[in-house]
Computed example of a mutant assay.
Amino acid sequence: MLEKGMLVNKVALVTGSSKGIGAGIALELAKAGADVCINYSNSRGDAEQLVNQIKSLGRRAIAVRANVAERAQVIEMVEACESNLGPIDILVTNAVASVRNSILETKFEDLQKTVEIGIFGVFHTLQVVARRMVDQGKQGTIIHVSSPHARTPFKEAIDYNVAKAGSHHLVMTVANELMWHKIRVNILEPGWTDTPGERAWYSDEQMKTMGERMPLGRMGLPEDLGKAAVFLATKAAEYIVGAVIKVDGGQFIEGGPSWESTSRHQ
């Protein structure tokens, strides 16, 4: 049973957490008692607003700008988090980039950027934090936000498909290695989630209509992912390692879309 305050004295770092799913996860971790390091690349205002929101809950929080594709910036981000909040107990790798085009339209530089953030950025963050957890003898928790795109090659999403498939396998390999250090690594897989990123592709009316077509009558919300992340970070999940937990309202039950899929999904 999950209780308020069960993550008190825990420090969390959530990459790509100024808005969307990352912000939802950061906020729910804070509600559960964790102090949170908010990572952003460009959205400083959103990150600072989230920091203030977390502080209003009585938790500590800082915002750190870093492009996770740049290893030196990742190291600086982790050091800033630890010097201000303490050693990291919970890491959530959520930072992502996406252009989503067909093979006929995708530019190499767009593919390269998505892969650098979505795969290399995950590698840098995981490695830097994991090494510190091992050196400190911490039994930490690492959560990666993946996607149905890791398994299903949706059309018109070349860069995103490649990045999510690669990062998914990377994280599973890490789970297989770090569990021997008592560090649990798991994956959250969102379905179609109402985020600013999705609203860049669709109108409010389209989002409303598509939400009504979902099995549970609505699209996912960032806090749905946040609640699942809180569960994975607590002792209630202490025997769960290398799991892929779908938070999709039944959209991809048994590995296939439960309703007519579109070309773009979160």
Results as ranks from 00 to 15, higher is better:
S146A: 11
W201R: 14
T152G: 00
G191D: 13
V129G: 02
W201V: 13
W192K: 08
G211H: 03
L232I: 04
H181N: 15
A175W: 01
F108V: 13
A165S: 15
E198L: 15
V162G: 02
I119Y: 02
Q112C: 06
E212Q: 15
L221W: 01
I183R: 02
E189M: 14
E223G: 05
H149E: 09
V162A: 15
A163R: 07
M179D: 03
G191H: 07
L111W: 14
P190I: 02
E116Y: 07
Q127M: 05
G121Q: 07
E109V: 10
S167W: 04
K182P: 00
A163F: 09
V128Q: 02
I142E: 08
L111Y: 13
G166K: 06
K113I: 06
M172L: 05
L126G: 10
K107V: 11
E205Y: 13
A150N: 06
Q139D: 14
D204L: 11
L178K: 08
E189D: 05
V122H: 14
F154H: 13
L225N: 12
K164M: 07
D204H: 05
W180K: 12
V122Y: 14
G118R: 00
R199A: 12
G217L: 03
L178M: 03
M214E: 13
A228Y: 07
W192I: 11
N186M: 04
G217I: 12
H169N: 11
K164Y: 11
H169G: 01
T106V: 15
L126P: 01
L225C: 06
V230D: 04
K138L: 15
T195P: 09
T193V: 12
G121S: 13
I187F: 01
D159W: 11
E116C: 10
Q206H: 12
L225A: 07
P153T: 09
E223P: 03
S167I: 09
F123K: 06
E177Q: 13
M219R: 10
M207D: 01
E205Q: 15
T114E: 10
F108C: 00
F123A: 11
V145Q: 09
V129Y: 00
G217R: 03
P196H: 00
V129H: 10
G197P: 03
N186Y: 01
V128K: 07
P196W: 11
T193Y: 03
A228G: 07
M214D: 02
V122L: 07
P148S: 01
G191N: 11
L178E: 06
W180Y: 14
A150M: 08
E156L: 12
F231E: 03
A175V: 04
D194W: 04
M207T: 00
E205L: 14
M219T: 10
H181R: 12
T193P: 06
T125D: 09
